[in-house]
């Protein structure tokens, strides 16, 4: 039985939750641990914290967040952002994170994925991919290009091929974000989601663009994602995770009910 997961995402800057609109305008939406506990009560299946703190030198704030979350919230949570080494990941896992997500550092040095998988097991290693459509003459074959550094730097790498490579290197999951859709509320990039989901053997989390409950449904039914991630529709109280589960159940998707 395949059971789709609903995952609220909390962007964290200096220990506070924010949600980027196209990664530029940031609005404070509260304390991450309180918000996490609220989502647990609502029936969230997992949580993702993305650390977007600009000063990359200080890792203590995010480690402390993992520590506090593990004391209060008893569902799986992933921490991503700024993880550059096995040691960075180890600190977060020892503090209580269940999974660590790598993006830029994995593109720069793909062996990191294998090193982490060997050290902690694949289930602890999420490879995050920020992808954007490209119509340039030198666009990669799938038409989706990998971007790094929070979406600022193009790499020329094909997003679908990179997802397959991450699977081969030992990733346990792909967190796939459409940079074209992120912050737009126009829905997931279904073509991108389906292309990656159908190309890899590991679970794919669809991300970027959710503005309605129907978008979550589409991510699973048309994008073939194993999990759907959203931020603002949950953070500002428009919808609860329970609403999301109800909409998905009505569409014939199996989810863990939120009581």
């Amino acid at each position: 039985m395949k059971v789709a997961r609903v995952i609220p995402c909390l962007d964290v800057d200096e220990g506070r939750v924010v949600k980027g609109v196209n990664f530029v305008d940031l609005v404070d939406a509260g304390d991450p641990v309180e918000l996490a506990a609220r989502y647990d009560k609502q029936g969230a299946d997992e949580l993702v914290f993305l650390d977007i703190t600009a000063s990359s030198g200080n890792r203590d704030t995010i480690v402390e967040l993992a520590r506090r979350t593990a004391e209060e919230v008893f569902i799986p949570f992933t921490i991503g952002g700024g993880i550059r080494s096995v040691e960075d990941a180890r600190r977060l896992l020892r503090a209580g994170a269940d999974k660590t997500s790598v993006m830029t550092s994995a593109v720069q040095r793909p062996e990191l994925v294998t090193e982490m998988a060997n050290e902690f097991g694949s289930q602890c290693v999420v490879v995050a991919i920020d992808a954007r459509r490209s119509t340039d003459a030198d666009a990669p074959p799938s038409g989706f290009e990998v971007f790094t550094h929070g979406g600022r730097n193009r790499t020329g790498i094909d997003a679908v091929a990179w997802a397959q490579e991450a699977d081969r290197l030992g990733a346990g999951e792909i967190l796939l974000t459409s940079m074209d859709r992120d912050g737009t509320r126009d829905g997931f990039d279904i073509q991108l989601t389906a292309a990656v989901s159908n190309a890899v053997g590991i679970p794919v989390i669809a991300s970027g663009g959710v503005g309605s409950l129907d978008h979550l449904v589409e991510g699973v039914t048309e994008g073939h994602a194993d999990a759907v991630l959203a931020a603002s529709i949950f953070h500002f109280g428009e919808h609860t995770v329970g609403d999301a589960k109800d909409a998905m159940t009505s569409a014939g998707i199996t989810v863990r009910p939120s009581d």
């Binding site: 039985m1 395949k2 059971v3 789709a4 997961r5 299946d45 694949s122 289930q123 346990g172 999951e173 053997g201 590991i202 679970p203 194993d226 999990a227 863990r256």
Partner: peptide
């Protein structure tokens, strides 16, 4: 016949 790992909630 199923995705591995099973990484989800189940009954």
């Amino acid at each position: 016949t199923v995705k591995r790992p099973q990484m989800q909630w189940n009954k």
